[in-house]
Simulated assay, not measured.
Amino acid sequence: MSALKKAPSPNPGNLLPASLADRQLDHIERMVRSIVRANSARPVHGMDQEYWESRLHALVNESDLVAVQQHRVQRLLQDLAKRLRPNALKQTAA
């Protein structure tokens, strides 16, 4: 969960409301699903794993996410990590 910690903000009132984050999360979820399904180490349309991870981290830092949204972000980061190391996760499950 350390990936979800927000950087201290000088003014917490500057965070975007959680209601605005849902649309971004929906988009990122669709893209991550298509990337994971592509099952390729190459970037999809020039946007690699680091790009999507940075989008997720920016969303966490800019928005006042509720618990459900934080779990969605965590799951997306895990999905991206699985794509990078698919065999490492299979070995730990065995």
Rank of each mutant, 00 (worst) to 15 (best):
R37Q: 14
L84N: 10
R30Q: 13
V36H: 06
V36S: 05
R55V: 05
R85H: 15
L4S: 02
K5R: 14
Q69N: 02
A3Q: 13
V66L: 06
S9P: 03
N61L: 02
R42T: 09
Q70V: 00
L76K: 03
A3W: 07
R33W: 06
K82V: 09
R83N: 11
R33T: 08
R55F: 00
N14F: 06
V60M: 02
S9V: 12
E62I: 05
V68S: 15
Q24D: 14
A88M: 10
E29V: 03
E50D: 14
Q74P: 02
K6A: 07
I35P: 03
D26L: 06
K6H: 00
Q78R: 13
P12M: 01
R30C: 02
E29L: 06
R72K: 09
L25I: 05
L59E: 02
A41S: 12
T92E: 14
L80W: 03
Q49L: 13
Q91T: 12
M1Y: 07
A41Y: 07
N11S: 10
A94K: 08
S54G: 07
L25W: 04
A58E: 13
V44A: 09
A7V: 12
L16M: 11
D26M: 04
P17Q: 01
L15V: 01
E50W: 07
S19V: 10
I35G: 05
L77Q: 03
R42I: 04
S63K: 04
N11L: 08
A88D: 12
R33V: 09
Q74W: 06
K5A: 11
Q74S: 15
P12Y: 05
P8C: 04
D22M: 00
L80V: 04
S9Y: 04
L80C: 01
Q70H: 07
E29Q: 08
L25E: 02
H57G: 06
H71I: 10
R42A: 15
Y51S: 01
H71R: 15
A3N: 12
R42Y: 10
K82W: 14
H57K: 13
Y51R: 01
L80A: 01
K82H: 15
H57F: 11
W52K: 02
S34R: 14
D64S: 14
V44F: 06
P43I: 03
R83P: 02
K82Q: 14
A81C: 12
D22K: 06
H27P: 03
Y51Q: 00
H57R: 15
S40R: 06
R55I: 04
M1G: 15
D64M: 01
L77K: 02
Q49I: 13
A38S: 10
R55G: 00
A3I: 03
E62H: 09
R75A: 15
R42L: 14
L56Q: 02
H45E: 15
L16K: 13
S54M: 08
Q69F: 03
S19F: 07
M1P: 11
A38R: 07
R33N: 13
L84P: 05
T92V: 15
Q70S: 08
P8F: 07
V44H: 08
E50I: 06
S34C: 07
L89M: 10
A7K: 13
S40F: 01
H45T: 10
P17T: 04
N14T: 08
V36E: 00
A88R: 11
K5E: 12
D22N: 11
H45F: 12
E53C: 05
P8L: 10
P43F: 07
N61F: 03
A88K: 10
V68W: 09
